[in-house]
């Protein structure tokens, strides 16, 4: 056994489960993560938000102790991933971006075999698999092969599998990407239940509704760095107006109208088919614009969302 006292790993309730300082990951010349600082406390649901290639997954893999860091400090469950990888992984649950279920095994065997990797006894994995099949609503598919399952079922199985060792910290990399709306809502419901049970969640996503649904606190990443941090509400308050007025025009007509409304909003954004006016009171801006003779084909006032924050912080240019 290693000489580390048992108490180092066991942390008290309000403890910090993940602490990163100046975390860096380089692949050859490419710097995927460029100095990230985060702190995740027990019981929190914490989100990494960002476009593809922002460095979210690389950060997650370092936290999951499957990718050694290039530089910086990292403590997971109070331990150093470089020295205690197997011990830390024994207490984590990991849901990777792409399901890596074992296609050569049945649904139930996937859970049982995975449990054995954590050193659970045969008896334990049998009981645990039955519980988790129930949780994932897959009991009636228990003895089927994995391959014919729908995307949503596979995702639920991957999540169930990640829970086999009753992890203290669950890492979810884009948990609902590619799923239909029903499957997404079902998954969110499952994750919400886990959160209620006190499991700490770390989620990466590029879906804003997902981040608003799941996360107490999040960071927005772009180009390997953190560009904003806070609760969803705080981020909206800080980086966007309260409301957004969307004005639609016939294609390529919207430019002509910018001078007319420029002074009415905090910020005006020109999209190919419409104008976005960021303002505290959208209706008031719409009324003022109409008074000035503007006749859009349609108009919409909505509350600002994380998506507005996201696009503002990370830009509209396609990154990958």
């Amino acid at each position: 056994m290693s000489g580390v006292p048992a108490t180092v790993g066991s942390v008290s309730d309000d403890a910090v489960l993940v602490q990163a300082d100046g975390l860096v990951k380089r692949f050859g010349d490419f710097e995927a993560v460029r100095g990230v600082d985060v702190k995740v406390r027990r019981g929190e649901a914490f989100g990494f938000l960002g476009p593809n290639g922002a460095g979210k997954s690389s950060t997650m893999r370092m936290i999951a102790c499957t990718s050694p860091r290039t530089a910086g400090e990292l403590r997971v469950l109070g331990l150093d991933p470089d020295r205690h990888g197997p011990r830390i992984r024994g207490r984590l649950g990991v849901v990777p971006q792409q399901d890596n279920l074992d296609n050569e095994l049945t649904v139930r065997q996937n859970l049982q075999v995975y449990g054995r990797y954590f050193g659970l006894s045969r008896h334990q994995v049998r009981a645990r698999a039955t519980e988790l099949l129930e949780f994932a609503q897959l009991s009636d598919r228990a003895d089927d092969q994995v391959e014919p399952l729908s995307g949503g079922m596979k995702r639920r199985l991957t999540i169930a599998r990640s829970l086999v060792n009753e992890p203290e910290l669950l890492l979810l990399d884009e948990p609902t990407t590619g799923l239909d709306p029903q499957a997404r809502h079902l998954l969110w419901d499952k994750l919400f239940r886990l959160k209620q049970q006190g499991v700490t969640l770390i989620v990466t996503t590029h879906y804003m509704d997902e981040a608003e649904q799941l996360c107490d606190r999040l960071v927005v990443m772009d180009g390997g760095r953190i560009v904003a941090e806070g609760s969803p509400a705080a981020l909206i308050a800080e980086h966007s107006s309260r409301e957004v007025l969307e004005l639609r025009f016939p294609i390529d007509q919207q430019h002509h109208h910018v001078p007319l409304v420029e002074d009415l909003a905090e910020r005006v954004e020109v999209l190919p088919d419409r104008l976005l006016l960021y303002a505290t009171n959208g209706e008031a801006v719409l009324a003022a614009a109409t008074r000035r003779g503007m006749r859009p084909t349609s108009s919409l006032v909505r509350r600002a969302t994380l998506e507005d924050v996201f696009l503002r912080l990370t830009g509209r240019t396609l990154v990958d």
Binding site: A64, T66, G90, L92, V94, N100, Y117, F118
Partner: peptide, 12 residues
Amino acid sequence: AKVYDAMLATPL
């Protein structure tokens, strides 16, 4: 098959 990726997310 990415079978090993899944294994390495455990203590293995």
